[in-house]
Amino acid sequence: MAEILDYTIVSIILLAIGIYGLTVKRNFIRMLFAVEIIVNAANLNLVAFSRLMPSPNATGQTFALFSIAIAAAEVAVGLALMIVAYRIYRNIDIKGLKRLSG
């Protein structure tokens, strides 16, 4: 059985990967991936604490369920935005993306 420290360290590595993705990537879908990875790192933390803390309770798991549902709702909206962007930019080229600067 792995210890709580192991789980939190995996979770922190995933958090770092997510933040890396958000700072480096300029592609909307990749950034969405990064957000999902961050949320999942948090969920891992929650469930690990829920099981491995000195007095386990179910709150962490409940929290994880809520956060999974929230992430799904967020992704749905994000991808809808993506499709709108696709409809707008279908006919024009890349320079459209630079319009909002600063």
């Binding site: 949320v39 829920s50 803390m53």
Partner: peptide
């Protein structure tokens, strides 16, 4: 921001 908040909340819960 919400990812960070959930992460922070997970730590506080822990």
């Amino acid at each position: 921001a919400s990812g960070m908040l959930i992460y922070a909340a997970s730590l506080i819960y822990g």
